[in-house]
Amino acid sequence: MGRDVRDITRSPEHFRALRREGLRFRVGPFVAHVRTPFTRLRHDFLETYEGFPLASEAEATTFHLQVRATAPLRRWLRPKLMADAGFAHTPFVPLPGDLGMLAMEMGLNWLVATSSDRFLMFHAGLVERGGKAILMPGASGIGKSTLTAGLSLSGWRFFTDEFGLLDPDTLAFHPHPRPISLKNESIPVLAERVMPERLGRPLHETPKGTIRYLKPPRDALERMADTAPASLILYPNYNPNAKSQVIELPKHEAFAMVRGAAVNCDRLGETAFRALAALTDRCRSFRLIYRSLDQAIRMVSDLMEHAP
């Protein structure tokens, strides 16, 4: 990609823009336009989103989001903020003024989840190597983000830790490299593997405990337009007390599991069914039980070599 494209920087210009007209930047196939008056949030945002490509005049906006004060006076007295996408019936809740990044990330996640029906969307982490992607569906809190982050620091290209975006026509996955949300115990595990400046400051006492956002690797941002087909579906399960093992799923179970991870499959109907059937035919599916991150990374590399 040509470097004439401007990136988000920690500059006074972008700091100002966030408060005034907002910043428009690209995340994979989407263009987000965000705005907020909060100083702390603007610092946090520029730190975490530094290096994301700004959208050009020729690109239309996909999502609009602002993080605003819950009530005009509140902002000065006792800061409380919330995400606002401008639509009725959003699930956003007021948060303490310190948790602006959380409001922003949750707001963007909601927008992706509710308005990307161009894609069949999986609640999953996704990495790629050698043109082959691995889909890792899973609920929060079972190690999906940690494993995705770990792999992306070990020679794999990071696609997403939250939204696997499948083009149902081409069966290729689109990267959506957003900051990786590390929670609680997974924070020290990853902190020892990255330069400190890649990790955002800790957000304490969030509804999910302590959260730190990890900046996506440089190559993930530079190649965010390069798609890849999946060749493997893994269901990671971190369990320090269990025997580590790899269990292949029978086809019908694989179908049911991956369908369960497809967030918008009811909205896509027949399109989703065809894509899920093709995906189940093309990819082998495994349950991966592991005791440590390093062990999991070795297991995934082995699987990739032996079950292409």
């Binding site: 029978p250 086809k251 179908f255 369908r259 109907g269 069914f273």
Partner: peptide, 20 residues
């Protein structure tokens, strides 16, 4: 009705109901 064979069982998508 769209059928997909999964070995031991089959799945069918009913495009009228949107159910699988």
């Amino acid at each position: 009705l769209l059928w997909h064979d999964l070995g031991a069982v089959a799945v069918v998508f009913n495009a009228r109901s949107g159910d699988t």
